[in-house]
């Protein structure tokens, strides 16, 4: 009896390595995040290859063919009030919005992560100073801050990116600080410190790898909010210079002619809605996948 029980204990300790192999992050996301990721990939792909797509020039209008409705000859989604092809303007406008939506978040994530990590690891005085200044930035509604900066810096893609980057530093810094403050109390940090790891080593090898996924998931969600603000600025004429196609300014142009063909005005609205909803869906999915909540489904 005793001789047979020993091998059983031993085999139960040797677990096949495959059982612990983690499924990829994407496969652990909930279904709706996967759908959003799929749709978004298509949108990004079409925006990326826009110059080689067989669509009309987004800048050249035909004044004889203004406000054509869906399915008109050569204009699948109709034309706008200056006779420019709607489908082509939507594709190029999405391109503009994606650049203005993603690039500032990349900058803001880099700066905000550094800011929040330093604040989280520092002593009380520096932490209070760093986080109180973040709190002050929160006293401005994001749209308003972006608007003031856009006025200050002038209209254009470059300045738009700078303005929007500044807007999102504070939210990223706050999330990063919360994460770092949580992680630095955990046992493995103490273990690393007691085994003689220096500040820099703990920062790079222990803290950043654990906090980064959560911050990146949050940043992904922020892209949606950023695209929304970009569209809003374009709507009130503070986006990129016209006639560059941009979704916000298209919304404004189509609102003016809303009574001519309401369904035509609805098209750019749907694109803006889709873009700003998909990024948070993906971001939430990433967060759930990281936290392990999506694992069961």
């Amino acid at each position: 009896m005793t001789s047979t029980s020993v091998p059983i204990v031993q085999t139960s300790l040797v677990v096949p390595a495959t059982r612990f192999r983690r499924r990829s992050v994407i496969s652990r996301m909930p279904l709706r995040s996967k759908i959003a990721l799929g749709v978004l990939s298509l949108v990004v792909a079409s925006a990326a290859v826009a110059p080689v797509l067989p669509v009309a020039d987004p800048l050249v209008g035909n004044l004889g063919a203004r406000l054509l409705s869906f399915g008109s000859h050569g204009h699948l989604l109709g034309t706008d009030s200056q006779g420019r092809d709607m489908l082509s303007r939507l594709i190029y406008g999405t391109r503009t919005s994606l650049v203005a939506g993603v690039v500032p978040i990349l900058f803001a994530t880099a700066i905000g992560l550094a800011w929040g990590t330093i604040a989280g690891l520092s002593g009380r005085v520096i932490n209070t100073l760093a986080m109180r200044s973040v709190d002050v930035l929160f006293a401005f509604p994001g749209v308003l801050l972006a608007l003031l900066l856009a006025i200050k810096l002038g209209v254009g893609m470059g300045t738009l990116i700078v303005a929007l980057s500044l807007v999102w530093i504070a939210p990223v810094a706050r999330i990063a600080e919360t994460e770092v403050a949580r992680v630095k109390e955990l046992d493995f940090i103490t273990a690393a410190r007691s085994s003689g790891a220096g500040f820099g080593s703990i920062l790079v090898r222990q803290v950043i790898p654990v906090t980064l996924p959560a911050v990146l998931a949050y940043s992904t969600s922020l892209v949606g909010a950023n695209i929304a603000i970009t569209g809003g600025l374009g709507f009130i004429g503070l986006g990129v210079k016209s006639p560059t196609p941009e979704l916000g300014s298209m919304l404004q142009e189509m609102q003016v002619v809303i009574y001519n063909d309401p369904s035509l005005s609805l098209v750019p609205v749907i694109v803006v809605l889709a873009l700003s909803i998909m990024f948070p869906l993906i971001g939430d999915g990433l967060r759930d996948a990281i936290n392990g909540r999506g694992r069961a489904s």
Binding site: S221, G224, A225, A228, G231, G232, F235, L251, V269, V272, L273, S276, I277, F279, P280, L281
Partner: peptide, 8 residues
């Protein structure tokens, strides 16, 4: 949660 208010 994420739909821009102007689009709504």
């Amino acid at each position: 949660l994420s739909a821009p208010q102007y689009a709504v």
